[in-house]
């Protein structure tokens, strides 16, 4: 049991870090690859302030697989050359997880994201908050995100967002 949990924890952490690595590398296909192929795969980025007041609106609201794919198109094709680019560094730490059923795990992690605009070169905090993830175990034993809600403590962003958090 202990060994199984250790292996699972390592696999969950690998998934969290794969997402951080894809985002910091601006690798949107890599980001998408961390999500389940199921139609209902979703990514929602929303302030905790909205959530706590029963308001569903987000900064990003990709509530099906095709919207996740469109998010890749936004960044890779539609917005190219129109914005001041910035680097990010995502720091993520798993806080809690629990098994929902044989193929599903809920995970809560803290995150903080540093941002460094390429023009100013000054680093500041872009956002802090928590990821509320539902993770799917596929038949081959791999883990993918079925749903992720990036819930931001940062209710007032210091800048527009190009990349998902």
């Amino acid at each position: 049991m202990m060994q199984t949990d250790t292996a699972l924890e390592a696999a969950l952490d690998a998934l969290l870090l794969a997402d951080a690595s894809a985002l910091d590398g601006k690798d949107m296909q890599g980001w998408l690859a961390n999500y389940s192929e199921e139609d209902e795969a979703s990514y929602i980025c929303r302030s905790a302030e909205n959530s706590e007041n029963g308001l569903a609106l987000g900064f990003m609201f990709d509530d099906c697989r095709s919207r996740l794919e469109d998010r890749v198109t936004f960044v890779n094709d539609i917005w190219v050359g129109t914005f001041q680019d910035y680097r990010t560094r995502h720091f993520v730490q798993r806080v809690k997880y629990w098994r929902v059923d044989a193929a599903t795990i809920s995970v809560r992690s803290n995150f903080s994201v540093f941002m460094t605009p390429t023009d100013s070169g000054i680093t500041q905090v872009l956002a802090a908050g928590q990821y509320l993830d539902t993770v799917r175990l596929d038949k081959a034993g791999g883990l993918k995100l079925l749903s992720r809600r990036a819930e931001l403590d940062t209710s007032v962003l210091p800048r527009y967002l190009v990349y998902p958090i």
Partner: peptide, 19 residues
Amino acid sequence: RQSSNLLGPCGLISMEDAS
């Protein structure tokens, strides 16, 4: 769905305005 993704500081047709 449309409000979250279209016109705000991260919106499909408005993020570049913010920039």
